[in-house]
Design a protein around this nucleic acid. Structure first.
Length: 222
DNA sequence: CATGGGATTGACT
DNA sequence: GTCAATCCCATGC
């Protein structure tokens, strides 16, 4: 599985977002498999680029295959892959990873946040290491300074799907944490993967029997 | 220039 | 379920 080239990203963000599920993000000696993404496009008001070309959205409107890293809630760095042609503001938000390499380093970084609790990993379970867009940048050590760097040649790399992730089952649902365009089903998650973020997406359709057994999981939002 | 609102998380009730 | 932390930047006066 080689590093994805810019032309992979130079397509509709709605094609790229589900195809990034199963791909691998690498930063330094840590890596993880993407298990959840969201698509954003300047045509809809939840996207930062909806406001047009500003200092903040310059990266978004720039070349496909670059990293758009921005600060969220004044606290967290969120990682996106810029998509579509130069001049279009579109990106895929990387929302969750299944940790692959460097788990010890991820734990070390994630242990530093919040007050330590009295469990084994200083308050962080492996399933929760990268189960959110702010968590995964913390675990991988990705900084705001890497905004605009190439995902093909820069410090952050995204590689194509490994054999184990060929043709993953993907669940489609609404995006998280936004107040506009809430009806768009532009969130893509690996079905039944324990590393996806909250709120958990609807379970994958598997036939009526299982749906009857676990009805409570169908509507996780409160 | 002042203000307000987040593509969130973790701790606490 | 509720809430604070924290800062960039878009918007409006």
């Amino acid at each position: 599985m080689g590093t994805l080239r810019p032309d992979f990203y130079a397509r509709s963000v709605l094609e790229v977002a589900p195809e990034l599920v199963g791909c691998t993000v690498t930063h330094g000696n840590v890596s993880g498999v993407i298990v959840e993404t969201e698509a954003y496009h300047d045509s809809e008001p939840a996207c930062h680029a909806f406001a047009g070309l500003t200092p903040r959205t310059q990266t978004l409107f720039g070349a496909p295959g670059n990293a758009y890293v921005y600060r969220s809630y004044g606290v967290h760095a969120l990682l996106n892959a810029v998509c579509e042609r130069d001049g279009v503001g579109a990106a895929v938000l990387i929302r969750a990873l299944e940790p692959l390499d460097g788990v010890e380093d991820m734990l070390a970084r994630r242990r530093l946040v919040g007050r330590p609790r009295s469990d084994g990993n200083g308050g962080v379970r492996v399933d929760d290491l990268c189960s959110g867009p702010g968590k995964l940048t913390q675990a991988l050590g990705i900084w705001l300074s890497e905004n605009g760097t190439s995902l093909s040649r820069g410090p952050i790399r995204i590689n194509g799907r490994s054999r184990a992730w060929r043709d993953p089952e993907i669940v489609r649902s609404t995006r998280v944490g936004i107040s506009h365009a809430v009806d768009l089903h532009w969130r893509f998650s690996a079905a039944d993967n324990p590393h996806v973020s909250r709120p958990r997406p609807p379970i994958a359709p598997r036939g009526p029997a299982l749906a009857r057994v676990r009805p409570r999981l169908a509507r996780p939002r409160a």
